[in-house]
Design a protein around this nucleic acid. Structure first.
Lengths: 359, 359
DNA sequence: TGTCTGACTTGAAACGATTCAAATTGCTGG
DNA sequence: CCAGCAATTTGAATCGTTTCAAGTCAGACA
């Protein structure tokens, strides 16, 4: 019943079809030399392979051809809902290219990142994709990769230098979209929850906000601007949004809308508002950023600036696959930095200012 | 600048240390034979390896030793929030054992499952873990795995026969917990949204509910029992819960609580109730099942029956790692089926029945 | 008849590690 | 002075593929 199934090797296929392993290899891989192989031969070999249930041994193949058909995927914290769609995008694109992802999660710890990097190198991944949306460690290490001829791409982060491609959302445009929306709904007294200082997204998002405010001569009240602390956990945004909003409410400063750094922060804000019996969106509108999957499901569903997360995962794969190809063909190739366009998704957490509610 | 970094092989370490590759291998792997190696030798070899930055080549190693240090992880739909904590649990446990996960997502498609299975076999994963929480295809295929000497474990699903281990929550106990909670809060007119017929969890959960109802002589009104349709998408639960609840409300049947099949269904229900201006939990309590990450974040936060998802991922890894070890040592070993204990998590979506609200 | 041309096919050497059986060395005891 | 032993170390085969340079062979042509 549980007898060992002997592995079928190329040698077996050769034997069965009456040709040599060399020919079998050429045919089954459709190598350049396959042009010269007689059609009848091809057929016999392919039939034999199918009949025996031959399955190439990826490891043995790698040893000779240096292709592991494997890509490393390093996520900084899978717990962050931001990551799931990105991962889906990566997985799907890799599947199209017949690569298989090796999945690692750094838990936001530098030591873990390093150990995993080591493991990925031992497994000779052909490329590395890093999803680094919430991250405070510097990843200088990545720069070394190019020396090892491993193309790499980051999502949600940029590495200085010219060795790593990156895919990010256009944060400035996104910040602008968010404020523009609130502004057009008539909101003027808006509370802002800025992202943590050390997060790469925080700056540009705020800049987009400021620029728009300036362009319509909207005055931003400094006492309504609060910054999230530099916390390590990805989901700390919720806590932060909650606490900050609570404080704002206690200060009795009036505001009719909250522009949160991201969706989780927005949920935290909503929780605080609801607890203080401030109805969302009737008495206060809330906008998020990211459009993580739960934003559509929550009650009220969240108006937010959508990052095309799945597309970003896709994009990163395309970049590294191109890099791999270039390396194979010894072509020149240079990295690129992509900025994806964000999109405003209007749902139930925002509504027009009723003139009465302003005070 | 971007000069190729030549790979450091064991041969290089041998050369540098003045011993043979055989000795180097024995020392670096701490193989049984290492007992006989002089301490001084060990030191010199280890030093040389460190100085050169030697990194074993996982592929080459596999070829000889048959150990790929790789485990296949097949998820049926990563889009389902249920999967994230499970994945985290798997990842973490594998990391402890120095295995690296190859991540695949079947998108709930049989063809994709098969293709991925093929790829995993080509990569000679040492074991396979399948997360099959929402799944209608039969996975008879898995039974073949044991023939190939690959231990496998499923999470959230059981394969007939004695070749695949499994980890599930005790659905019956969970169903009981949910109803018990509502009952003790004083609810008597309860609407039930049962899981899809073809889902393995649906039966036992309902059985737990019925048994508890029977034990306290609670009458279940058949007209308040609705079943989710057999939909393929994991997130269809939300839609289903929404529609079903809408219908129930239209029928004007009175109920003071909804016991939903899972959290997503519960969110759908809450959405429908809210839309119909029925306040949750004031006018209607809602219980979910699973405790997916967003349940704590939503407003109102969801009372639910928690599956220990991360622990389940852990458990599955432990099972297959044991299986791998047994295989290596040619020990006998038999699969096991684990039932994890669920736990009631009380949050803000349920509250005691106010006597007035009953009619 | 002998040589040359394709048109196919293959032998044999890698790739980098592991694994025994066997070799080497230095002693010990008879 | 040598057999025999213990303590270390290693040679060489092997894992399954890929990849060229080189082989075979039939027929064409001179």
């Amino acid at each position: 019943m549980s007898g060992k199934v002997k592995m079928v090797t190329m040698r077996d296929v050769a034997q069965a079809s009456g040709f040599s392993p060399a020919t079998v290899s050429i045919v089954l891989n459709n190598a350049p030399l396959a042009r010269y192989i007689a059609p009848a031969t091809k057929k016999r070999i392919e039939d034999a392979a199918k009949k025996l249930g031959y399955r190439p041994n990826a490891m043995a193949r790698f040893l000779r051809s240096r292709r592991s058909q494997t890509v490393g995927v390093m996520i900084f914290d899978i717990t962050d809902p931001f990551c799931t769609p990105v991962l889906r995008g990566i997985e799907n694109a890799l599947y199209q290219s017949s690569y298989v992802p090796i999945f690692t999660d750094a838990h936001n710890q530098r030591a873990r990142f390093e150990r995993y990097l080591e493991m990925l190198l031992e497994h000779h991944v052909e490329a590395l994709i890093v999803v680094a949306n919430w991250l405070f460690v510097d990843i200088q290490l990545l720069a070394d990769l190019s020396k090892r001829n491993i193309t790499a791409a980051t999502i949600g982060w940029e590495v200085p230098g010219d060795s790593v491609s990156s895919v990010m959302v256009d944060n400035e445009a996104g910040g602008r979209l968010a404020l523009e929306h609130l502004y057009h709904l008539g909101h003027r007294r808006i509370a802002f929850i800025r992202g943590p200082k050390m997060l790469i997204d925080s700056g540009p998002r705020w800049r987009g906000i400021q620029k728009f405010a300036h362009s319509v001569a909207l005055e931003i009240d400094p006492s309504l601007v609060v910054q999230l602390p530099d916390e390590l956990e990805a989901n700390s945004g919720f806590e932060g949004g909650y606490r900050i909003t609570e404080e704002l409410l206690e200060r009795k400063k009036k505001f009719t809308a909250v522009l949160a750094f991201d969706d989780l922060t927005a949920f935290g804000a909503i929780r605080a508002l609801t607890k203080a019996s401030v109805k969302v969106p009737d008495q206060c509108s809330v906008v998020g950023f990211d459009d993580v999957p739960l934003s559509a499901l929550a009650a009220p569903s969240l108006t937010t600036v959508r990052q095309p997360l799945e597309a970003m995962g896709n994009m990163a794969v395309n970049l590294v696959v191109e890099g791999i190809k270039a390396g194979l063909e010894k072509r020149d190739w240079s990295i690129s930095r992509h900025k994806m366009t964000p999109e405003l998704v209007i749902r139930d957490s925002t509504r027009t200012m009723l003139s009465a509610a302003d005070d």
